[in-house]
Amino acid sequence: MARAGGLPVEAGSSLAPLRQDDESFADFAYRMLCDELIVLDIKPGEPLNDEAISRRLGVGRTPIREAMKRLESDHLVVAYPRRGTFAAGVDIKDLAEISEIRQLLEPAAAARAARIASPQLRQELREFASEVGQLLPGMHSQQDLMRLDMRVHRTIYRATGSRHLEDILVRYDNLATRIWSLVLEKLPPVSEHIAQHIELLECIAAGDSEAAARLTTQHVTDFENLIRAVL
């Protein structure tokens, strides 16, 4: 899984996106397109032309095709023979199934992270919890809050120390966040929802696996209820 770093570049921005030093061209293309698909900068059903994307990102067409294959396996794009590749649709009816899977996996992931995190990682989680607390009061953009939520989730997934579990969790969080993006303008400010992460990160850092699992269950449930309230 590519590590997201720095600030994402909006689709259509005149600023050239930056590739990280340790990032392959295919990983870079995957990261950029994944972000645009998740926050719906690339709209559901929109065609993805590899030549146009190649020019926009400054990446060859072969890495673009590699990225497209990964995005297809993530259920973020759909490829049709002789028609091309399109951004996957967002179906609100998928929310219940996605939430059920997350309810099973995310508490287990948080508990695992609390059990196995190294002393160095625990300190990083404490510092990140403090950073989230400092960032939230100045965050008024719903999209910025959504990106912060994604960043916290990915930090916790990485802390599980399981590449396979991390990949699965990222995939379903991406799908959930696409649904979130679809109704983002209808939602009240979600800063309180994001603030739940502070205690969660602190519990993982403290090694309290039971509290970490309980708080994660509540967070995923609150997310589903938040979305359903505006449907």
Rank of each mutant, 00 (worst) to 15 (best):
A4I: 00
G5N: 09
G5S: 14
G6D: 08
P8V: 07
S14T: 11
P17W: 10
S24Y: 05
A26N: 03
D27W: 11
D27S: 14
F28Y: 14
L33T: 09
C34Y: 11
D35T: 03
E36S: 12
L37M: 09
P44Y: 10
E46C: 02
P47E: 11
P47W: 13
N49S: 14
N49W: 03
E51W: 09
L57D: 02
L57M: 12
G58F: 13
G58M: 07
R61T: 14
T62V: 13
I64W: 01
A67R: 01
A67I: 02
A67L: 11
M68V: 08
K69P: 00
R70G: 12
E72H: 03
S73M: 08
V78Y: 10
A79Q: 09
Y80A: 02
R82I: 15
F86C: 01
G89C: 04
V90R: 01
D91W: 00
E97I: 06
I98A: 05
E100V: 11
R102G: 04
P107A: 07
P107E: 05
A113Q: 06
S118E: 02
S118P: 04
Q120M: 15
Q120E: 15
E124N: 11
E131D: 13
V132Y: 04
Q134R: 13
L135W: 06
M139T: 14
Q143P: 00
Q143I: 15
L148Q: 06
M150R: 08
R151C: 12
V152R: 01
R154M: 06
R158H: 12
R163G: 04
Y172D: 03
D173F: 07
D173M: 09
T177G: 01
T177I: 08
T177H: 10
T177V: 15
T177N: 07
R178Y: 03
R178H: 02
L184E: 03
K186L: 14
P189M: 10
V190E: 05
V190P: 01
A195Y: 05
I198W: 06
E202A: 14
A205F: 09
A206F: 01
A211L: 12
A213M: 03
A213F: 09
Q218R: 15
H219I: 00
V220Y: 01
V220D: 03
N225L: 03
L226N: 02
I227P: 00
A229Q: 13
V230Y: 10
